[in-house]
Design a protein around this nucleic acid. Structure first.
Length: 896
RNA sequence: GGGAGUUUAGCUCAGCUGGUUCAGAGCAUCUGCCUUACAAGCAGAGGGUCACUGGUUCGAACCCAGUAACUCCCA
């Protein structure tokens, strides 16, 4: 029988994923076991898998698989969110391709197209997660617009409204003219943009001219008049100006106090107002105030009771209130008005200028500040307890540095605009009466009952439901509860069992967006936290540190990576470079390392698989077996500790080294039967064989959370005997920490040094590894090298290990621990080189001793340092002195 | 402009309460090996003024102050 030289992951991935599914290993239902629950951060239903998802879901899968193997009832709930704006944009695009305009559709018609789109494309990302090995309970797959999920959202809205925490009001919102909806502050991405600053002249009205604007024309000779100049990046909004504002302390403009000016081109007269808000040294010190199109101007306008003139349509074209350029897009209008102003002699100059501009996260359109009637959710009452959970440690943020950010947000929180002018989402359950009043109720029927209390003659037909839908985060904020139906049925068995969930794995970017809102709703509806630990991952960047993005084209396709390196390889690759909470500089070479690791394990398997048992051989590897047992347990301690601190990448590295170094490079080399001429099968004693197979099985278990496919594939090999159908690595019990023989481990460490030194001597003397060498030991320590003779002989290729009482002249020497070793070669040793090497070591030791002695002779050190520190220094001195003596003896030997 | 964070080997990162022969790991590099599991490998080796300047201390990568560079959040 021949086994492939390398592991080929594709087939195993297919096979075992469907095997796991078939046997319901991902399924979780409440039982007597302790639950371990993770709800997936629901990816956007329009999304396709990107590297961020890969990282995030690999981490979740590692956590959930580990919990499963530790005997917990592990439940990972998958799903997607409906992403109003993004989905609606996709649907609009789909309709456009079919020649349908959204405007021509009713709400119901549009929604049926949207559902059609969702059914067709909405599940892609979840299918992709399966390729990664994600062990979600797919039967629990949820979508934020499922009927029960939407009902939960409406319930929550009604609940908050009853408490008086939801209100309606005109506010300046971030308007996305492409999506034609308001978006929240968090959905606005600010970027530096190169712009122009336009200096525009406004004619100052002479005293007699007040109110005479109607007769004015634009044909005045400019020089005979007085002007003031403003600087603006948005000349197309001058028609919406309500005033010019100057700082009352600005001495340059004292003469303007109480005057008014004319807006160029349209010659509307506006007052000059005074406010300290204006920065004197920015631009010209004169600020055009446009309350309808700038948040700060709006507030300024409120203070000075200025009119609000909105000159923009919902799609950011100019409306008839602009008087000129009606119907033009705002950016076209900007270009055109610059020309018009120039022609009218009102444009003094333009300057280059960079400033922060807001872009819609979803459509990338430039955000337009816009006044509109919106629904808001009051935040202070919700935020306060939500902050407490984190500050008192009930909810832990990992890493802790995010607590500061979280606190800062929660203490400066503003009311949340929860309405979106879209159709795709949960329609706001507010019903308007013909007289303009409204009632809020779960259903139209309930609304009618309430409405009839106001006007008993009303019928269902008189009620009109609010057109807007709720922000998607309003529904995902309920996610950990609503997936278990905990909003509608707060006392059901599932929510009581699974909630609060254990770990949440997400990105710091949505700490406030989402994490905070889940904590708020959890507290509000259940007085409970939604989860205990929030593990915040970093952003996946390329190796140049740039964020991965479609436009840069610097993001590999995760599925290509899986094809290339195997899912296990990619999982390992992702985690090797992902410190908690820090961004990770991803590079494909990490996946390569992961693939190589998989291959290493595969080959260890091949080796063991090739052995044949010979009962007549006496067991001879007790030391190796006990040593690895101890090392394995030491590694388990380390891995446990790393997991307890969510240091997944370090736990992985500990596993990596355990397998590669301790198991493959040392243990297998210790026990593997030496090559025998003319013997085609390697034979091994039964005891060693059995121990090795058991070790390998334990190694597979430890590997499983990271490398589920490879471990499952090997688990079922006949090497481990016949397995029952349900005896799978995925549900195997994780090994528990056993005995550690620390003395043995310490002594083997010295033995390892001896072997490395012998190899080094062989290497530096250019001797073949095949050439066996004699080794002599002069023991100063308590180590019984006789016990390790076979190990040393096998791994160091030593012909004979002898004990000596004196240094061996003319031999290469080295020190391991405090013992001296000599390798006598056939060739003459290079006395000069050897002398130099020893002198170097001697000098180092002398220097080292000096520094140790400096401490020990320092009264203050002796007085202040803890006793164990002093003991340590004494031990260091003793060790160094012993080594120094050996080195000096050897030097004398060389000289003599 | 306000706040937070980062800076340790060529790269990515550990380094816990200041104290072990403490300056570490993985990758990459160099040298030698196609040794009967594995060249996707084996063996060995070389890489660092712990960003900079000062301070505290018997003792500083670690604590404090300042400086510089970068990153993120908020305005």
């Amino acid at each position: 029988m021949s086994i492939a030289k390398t592991y080929s992951p594709g087939e195993a991935e297919e096979k075992w994923y469907s095997y796991w599914l078939k046997h319901n290993f991902f399924r979780s239902v409440p039982d007597d076991r302790e639950p371990y629950t993770i709800v997936i951060p629901p990816p956007n239903v329009t999304g396709v898998l990107h590297m961020g998802h890969m990282l995030n879901n690999t981490i979740q899968d590692v956590l959930i698989r580990r919990a499963r193997m530790k005997g917990k009832n592990a439940c990972w709930v998958p799903g997607t969110d409906h992403a109003s704006i993004a989905t609606e944009a996709k649907v609009v695009a789909m309709l456009k391709e079919r020649g349908i305009n959204k405007k021509d559709l009713s709400r119901e018609e549009f929604l049926s197209y949207a559902w059609e789109w969702k059914e067709k494309y909405g599940g892609i990302i979840l299918e992709q997660l399966k390729k990664l090995g994600a062990s979600c309970d797919w039967e629990r797959t949820k979508f934020t617009m499922d009927e029960d999920m939407s009902e939960s959202v409406i319930d929550y809205f009604v609940h908050l409204h009853k408490k008086g925490w939801i209100y309606r009001g005109v506010r300046m919102v971030n308007w996305d003219p492409q999506g034609k909806t308001a978006v929240s502050d968090e959905e606005v991405i600010r970027k530096e943009v190169n712009q122009k600053l336009y200096y525009i002249k406004y004619e100052v009205a002479s005293d007699g001219e007040q109110g005479a604007s109607a007769e004015r024309t634009s044909h005045h000779a400019p020089n005979t008049k007085e002007y003031l100049t403003i600087a603006t990046t948005r000349p197309e909004t001058i028609m919406a100006d309500a005033a010019i504002c100057i700082n009352p302390n600005d001495e340059r403009y004292l003469h303007l106090h109480g005057k008014s000016v004319f807006i160029p081109l349209i010659n509307r007269e506006i007052p000059v107002i005074l406010d300290n808000y204006v920065t004197m040294d920015f631009g010209t010190g004169c600020l055009k105030v446009t309350p309808a199109h700038d948040l700060n101007d709006y507030e300024l306008g409120q203070r000075h009771k200025l009119p609000v003139i909105d000159i923009l349509n919902d799609d950011a074209t100019l409306n008839e209130k602009a008087q000129i350029l009606v119907g033009e897009d705002r950016f076209t209008a900007r270009k055109k008005i610059a020309v018009l102003l120039e022609e009218a002699g009102a444009l003094e100059k333009t300057e280059d200028y960079t400033s922060q501009i807001g872009f819609s996260e979803r459509t990338n359109a430039v955000i337009e500040p816009k006044l509109s009637m919106q629904w808001f959710c009051k935040m202070p009452e919700l935020a306060k307890p939500a902050l407490e959970y984190v500050l008192n440690g009930e909810v832990k943020l990992i890493p802790e540095k995010f607590i500061n950010t979280y606190r800062h947000w929660m203490e400066n929180v503003r009311d949340w605009n929860i309405s979106r002018q879209l159709w795709w989402g949960q329609q706001i359950p507010a019903y308007y009466l013909p007289n303009g009043d409204f009632v809020v109720a779960k259903t139209k029927e309930e609304a009618l009952t309430q409405a009839q209390a106001i006007d008993s003659k009303l019928t269902l037909n008189d009620l009109r439901q609010d057109e807007d839908v709720l922000d998607t985060w309003f529904s995902s904020g309920l996610w950990p509860m609503s997936v278990f139906d905990g909003v509608r049925n707060p006392d059901n068995a599932e929510i009581n069992y699974y909630y609060p969930t254990n770990d949440l794995v997400t990105a710091p970017e949505i700490l406030f967006f989402w994490v905070a809102r889940m904590i708020m709703s959890g507290h509000e509806l259940r007085a409970q936290k939604p989860f205990t630990n929030v593990y915040l991952t970093g952003i996946v960047r390329d190796k140049l540190g740039r964020k991965m993005s479609k436009s840069l084209g610097n993001s590999p396709d995760p599925l290509d990576l899986i094809n290339k390196y195997g899912a296990d390889g990619v999982r390992v690759g992702m985690l090797l470079c992902s410190p908690a909470g820090n961004d990770l500089m991803f590079d494909e070479s990490y996946c390569e390392q992961g693939r190589n690791f998989a291959n290493k394990i595969w080959n260890a398997f091949k080796l063991i698989k090739g052995w044949e048992i010979d009962d007549t051989i006496a067991p001879k590897n007790q030391i190796a077996i006990e040593w690895f047992q101890s090392r394995f347990n030491q590694a388990l301690v380390e891995i446990e500790d790393n997991f307890a601190q969510y240091r997944l990448s370090e736990a992985l590295m500990a596993t990596y080294k355990l397998v590669w170094d301790d198991f493959c490079a040392w243990y297998l080399e210790m026990v593997k039967p030496a090559y025998q001429q003319g013997v085609d099968k390697q034979k091994i004693d039964a005891e060693t064989y059995k121990a090795t197979v058991n070790f390998f099985e334990d190694v597979l278990k430890v590997l499983h959370p990271y490398m589920p496919f490879l471990s499952e594939e090997l688990w079922h090999d006949e090497l481990f005997g016949t397995r029952a159908e349900l005896d799978c690595c995925i549900v195997a019990q994780m090994p528990t920490i056993g005995k550690i023989n620390t003395q043995l481990v310490a002594e083997i460490e010295v033995v390892q040094q001896v072997i490395a030194q012998v190899r080094n001597i062989r290497n530096s003397n250019q001797l073949s590894p095949k050439e066996a060498l004699p080794l002599a030991v002069k023991t100063n320590s308590a180590i019984n090298y006789q016990a390790y003779e076979s190990v040393i002989k096998q791994l160091g290729n030593i012909s004979e290990l002898s004990k000596v009482d004196d240094a061996v002249n003319g031999a290469n020497s080295f020190i391991a621990g405090t013992d001296e070793f000599f390798v006598k070669l056939d060739i003459e040793i290079d006395v000069a080189a050897e002398t130099e090497r020893l002198e170097k070591e001697r000098d180092y030791l002398i220097g080292f001793l000096k520094s140790v002695n400096a401490k020990l002779n320092n009264e203050r050190f002796m007085a202040n340092a803890k006793p164990e520190i002093i003991d340590n220094e004494l031990k260091k001195r003793a060790d160094a002195e012993a080594r120094l003596k050996i080195v000096e003896d050897n030097l004398r030997g060389l000289a003599g």
